[in-house]
């Protein structure tokens, strides 16, 4: 345990992180691009049209990965925040700060693709459907996190305040989700669930979906690493090691 914590602290020291993340980014970015090309080909060309929804079903291949990952983003942001608060690791706060805009964009994209999908399906771009409403709340939570962090002139205080908000938010997300679900169960039930395996969805649609999911995940990791590097540069700009790194 102690050895692990030591390793963890070492990896999390800003100069060390800056070095290893630089080499790690291509390892995520390249597979992400390859998978995205394959995934989009499968999704837009080879996968069948839905007998009810026609070609609009193809929005799913963007919508579903993006929606899954936006929730994932919030959770990882909260975990990073908690690590930053409890073990006082500054890098964790930088990671949380790097995730926030990415997560907010994904949530916005999920809402946008969802409403595009809604137009042919429900005949309108926006309905107060349970899932759309939950994601709207998620977007507000992301916005609150970013706004609060920026409201403090001191970076560290902003980090800690926003971290508390992120943790309160992550406890609340299931409650918000269930209450909104309970409030409105008008939407079609989830057609894919991990526990039921591939219940309502054909494998010809599942493969492109998974490919896209991996592509977006890998891209997101690369994006967060790049954004964290920027955060680290900004935060540590007065430190000596920055000069060494930049001169090299």
């Amino acid at each position: 345990m102690n050895a692990f914590m030591n390793w963890f602290y070492r990896m999390a020291s800003p100069p060390h992180f800056y070095r290893w993340s630089g080499t790690a980014i291509p390892w995520f970015l390249v597979p992400a691009t390859v998978l995205a090309v394959i995934g989009l080909y499968l999704a837009l060309v080879t996968s069948p049209t839905d007998y009810q929804m026609g070609d609009t079903v193809r929005i799913m291949y963007v919508h579903v990965p993006v929606a899954w990952l936006s929730l994932m983003c919030y959770t990882s942001m909260a975990v990073a925040s908690a690590i930053g608060l409890i073990w006082r690791i500054k890098l964790a706060h930088a990671v949380a700060a790097a995730i926030a805009p990415a997560g907010a964009s994904l949530t916005a994209l999920a809402l946008f693709t969802g409403s595009l999908w809604g137009k042919p399906t429900w005949g309108t771009y926006w309905v107060w459907d349970a899932r759309l409403t939950s994601y709207l709340m998620l977007l507000f939570l992301f916005a609150g996190f970013a706004l609060l962090r920026n409201a403090f002139s001191d970076v560290q205080r902003g980090d800690r305040a926003a971290a508390i908000l992120a943790i309160v938010g992550v406890v609340n997300i299931p409650i918000i989700h269930y209450s909104v679900n309970w409030w409105n169960t008008l939407h079609q039930p989830a057609s894919f669930s991990v526990t039921k395996g591939q219940a309502g969805i054909d494998s010809s649609m599942l493969w492109p979906l998974f490919t896209m999911l991996f592509a977006v995940t890998l891209y997101l990791v690369a994006l967060v690493l790049m954004r964290t590097r920027n955060e680290v540069l900004i935060r540590e700009r007065r430190k000596a090691w920055i000069k060494e790194v930049l001169v090299k």
Binding site: M137, G144, L165, G169, N172, I175, I176, S179
Partner: peptide, 8 residues
């Protein structure tokens, strides 16, 4: 900050 939290 508070409004999304009190939706439930």
């Amino acid at each position: 900050l508070v409004l999304p939290l009190i939706v439930p």
